[in-house]
Amino acid sequence: MFHNLLVLIHHDILITLRQAYSWLTPLLFFVLVVCLFPLALGPDTETLNKIAPGIIWVAALLAILMSLGNIFRNDVHEGYLDLILLSSTPLTLLVFCKVISHWITHCLPLILISPLLGVLLNLNNTEELTLITTLLLGTPVLCLLGAIGSALIVSVRTQGLLLPILIMPLYIPVLIFSTSAMMAASLHQPLSAYFAILGAIALFTLVFAPFLTSAALRIGVNQ
């Protein structure tokens, strides 16, 4: 069983990596949005340093939202999902694997490149570390929550900006705690409380979201 899941994740990652377009565009989007802010606000390092957490986090959040739109899309169109629904594999597990592989292919590159963007926005070492930690704890939550919305509207033809409208309000707690952690880091305050809350949110979402996503997928496919 466990082996099957690993095979599934591996398979998904391979498919995504072959289409560079699908995982490179969110990354480029992320970098571009972050670079727009210094151009819009002026190159003053102090101002940029102050708003860096907000910029990086909002940009990451938008990039992930953009990438989530087609997480189940191909599986539904190619009829792969119908096969899964007929097979004995629980849909919840499949969904869980999909989200994990999506996180590895779409969020991990963002996290890996974020220290570089931190350098552009004059973050010091503690802030860089905090940024990476909050991204590591927060992005899985973003993926898991976004997957619910993506599954619900999987068969809707003209999605447009529906997914961001649906899901963005649910991202607010993660955004608040992550950016507050980074502000606390810049003021040399203790950070464990922020990480604890973010971790708690991550675990809570990890437990409930896959079930809701599989329920949403059953509803969404059926139209």
Binding site: L152, V156, Q223
Partner: peptide, 17 residues
């Protein structure tokens, strides 16, 4: 969400979720 889903039953259940 409810306004984009054409099918009545799907609309109800998606909205409920």
């Amino acid at each position: 969400l409810q306004s984009v889903i054409p099918n009545q039953q799907t609309r109800d259940r998606a909205g409920a979720l």
